[in-house]
Design a protein around this nucleic acid. Structure first.
Lengths: 148, 148
DNA sequence: GCCGGATGGTCAAGTAGCTTGACTACCTGC
DNA sequence: GCAGGTAGTCAAGCTACTTGACCATCCGGC
């Protein structure tokens, strides 16, 4: 494969990623969750199962723990999460989603589903599944880097 | 397809996009082009064929023309582009890549090709081509939104 | 022609989200 | 029980953006 083809593939993928991020965020806002940024969504993904500490969140997002702490301040202030005592470590605090945080997460899932349905109309359900499977095999582990 | 599956697909795609952006940028820096950010790469894509005006660049990048102008200042100062008189419009200035700008673009293509080769080893050449074709069909037109 | 609104570009000031640095509270291994 | 490491916050600074104001130039109507 030529270099220029690889670049074209990369550009296409990045354009789709940008569009996807924007559409999900718009969908979330349209469902009444204002003041949220895409970075919050990435945080919610990490917080969703059982909560996480600020440091864990920082690693997940690829930022300093100070930045993660500020982000937590923000989503706590807006009612999407709350800080609790950490069981078994008095230094740490467990950040967990509130009911509103869960509602926002569900809204993001709905928005994502809308976009993916659009893909389904262009490609067909089977190809979307194939796409998911292929991407799953080349995806990196662990953290996300939400800043370019 | 369930909402949670759509979200999983979205998360996977965004994780790959983040990884890809980071790897390309690292590859470019490793080839000796320091002081470049991913946003510069997106600008180069638009400038590459025949140059562009600041306003065209701003639309392409999805930012204000002031921001685009600052970005042009930066890449001009670093020797990647230069401003020329616009033929046929004395208000406008045509921003074109310098030889160093072209070299940097080729370096980005090489870096992208390295990453895509890695995908080829995981998926096989045929599946990478299929991926490219599928993504091409769901890609949005025109501009890129390099900020989340 | 030329006048008025639209457009291309820049200057200036403000802002948001990150960084680095310094610090306290707490945990853990010798 | 002390030394070094880790979780978290406070504070200050930086950078890439924004909004607002402005000048030079283009262009359509008269």
């Amino acid at each position: 494969m030529q270099n220029s083809e690889a670049m074209a593939l990369s550009t296409t993928l990045l354009a789709i990623a940008g569009e996807l991020t924007q559409r999900i965020n718009e969908g979330v806002v349209a469902r009444g969750f204002d003041g949220v940024r895409p970075a919050h969504g990435f945080a919610f993904v990490r917080l969703a199962p059982d909560g996480a500490t600020v440091t864990e969140l920082a690693v997940h997002l690829g930022v300093t723990k100070q930045a993660a702490s500020q982000l937590v301040d923000e989503i706590v202030r807006k009612g999407y999460a709350e800080r609790r005592a950490h069981p078994g470590d008095a230094r740490a605090r467990l950040v967990v989603l509130t009911e509103r945080g869960w509602a926002c997460t569900r809204a993001a899932e709905e928005a994502a589903a809308e976009v993916v349905r659009g893909w389904g109309q262009l490609l067909g359900e089977g190809e979307v599944r194939a796409l998911h499977e292929q991407l799953g095999r080349i995806a990196p582990y662990g953290r996300i880097r939400p800043t370019w």
